[in-house]
Simulated scan of single mutants.
Amino acid sequence: MAVILFVLILWYGGLFFQSFFLHRYAAHQVFTMSKTMERITFVLTWIFQGSSYLSAYGYGIMHRMHHAFTDTEKDPHSPKYDDNLFAMMWKTKTIYQDINLDRIAVDPRFTKNVPQWKSFDRFASSRFSRLLWIALYVLFFVYFVTAWWQWLLLPVAFLMAPIHGVIINWFGHIYGYVNFQMKNTSKNLFRFDFLMMGEGYHNNHHKHANRANFGVKWYEIDITYVIIRILNSVGIIQLKRV
């Protein structure tokens, strides 16, 4: 039971900070926060994403590129131009690393106001940091595993952020339903997105990219947006529009 709870905390904790900080703040800037709160959120993202930590800078730029070039050859991740999900994620990883290491020229429209904390990102993305989290996860499993099948969850803990990316960027362009007919393959995975905390409303998001609430229909409850509204009401963040 402890192992399952641990993986669920990593799943939803890492997913929240990916959606809240990397996606809606870094890429789309649907709300603002103080510099101190931004730094705190960097650290919390590292804690909850652990071994699969993603930098706000690399993620934010790459996601803006995805919106600009959706389902074209310039899209960093598209099932339309990749043979399988592993090929897509390898291509995504390469582009992400090239952005973070300044190995490619990036159009200034994709970098505008994207948060960056270079020194922290160097540490959080380092091999030392990733191996440290992996070692801590292994120790936790060694101590708390009660059945052999629970070991199958260990790779999920290691690769949490890429798994979240595969679900949205691969399956979210293949399976599901659409509220808006568009010139891309984006789809809504769930009518109530219990699994991806609102990120599964991918077709809605591609239609209204700068909207804080990814849900459109009454039953499309965006859990991340609910938390955002709470944080806004207590003054931790400031929504640009409701």
Rank of each mutant, 00 (worst) to 15 (best):
A2R: 04
V3F: 06
V7Y: 10
W11I: 07
G13M: 00
G14D: 02
G14R: 05
F16E: 06
Q18C: 15
A26M: 09
V30I: 15
M33Q: 12
M33G: 05
S34I: 01
S34G: 14
S34Y: 04
K35F: 07
E38C: 11
R39W: 10
V43Q: 00
V43K: 00
F48V: 09
S55C: 07
A56H: 06
Y57K: 11
Y57H: 15
M65N: 05
H67V: 06
A68S: 13
T70G: 04
T70N: 01
D71L: 10
D71Y: 03
T72E: 08
K74N: 14
K74D: 11
K74F: 04
D75K: 04
P76F: 05
S78W: 01
P79I: 01
Y81W: 15
D82Q: 12
D83F: 07
N84M: 06
L85Y: 14
W90G: 09
K91A: 08
T92N: 12
I95L: 15
Y96I: 03
Q97C: 05
Q97V: 03
Q97E: 14
Q97D: 14
D98W: 00
I99W: 00
N100D: 12
N100T: 03
D102H: 14
R103A: 06
V106T: 09
D107A: 12
D107T: 08
P108C: 02
R109E: 13
T111S: 10
V114Q: 04
P115E: 09
W117D: 11
S119Q: 12
R122F: 03
S125I: 03
S126D: 08
S126Y: 09
F128M: 04
L132T: 15
L132S: 13
L136G: 02
Y137H: 13
L139F: 09
F140A: 02
F140Y: 15
V142S: 05
Y143T: 14
Y143P: 00
F144K: 14
T146R: 15
W149R: 03
P155I: 07
V156A: 11
A161Y: 04
H164I: 10
W170Q: 00
W170L: 00
W170K: 01
F171N: 01
F171H: 10
H173G: 10
H173W: 09
I174F: 03
Y175P: 00
G176K: 06
V178I: 15
F180G: 03
L189D: 06
F190A: 10
R191S: 13
M196A: 05
M196K: 01
Y201H: 06
H202M: 14
H205G: 09
R211D: 12
G215D: 07
I221K: 04
I223H: 00
T224F: 01
T224K: 07
V226W: 14
I227C: 08
N232A: 10
V234R: 07
I236T: 12
I237P: 05
L239M: 13
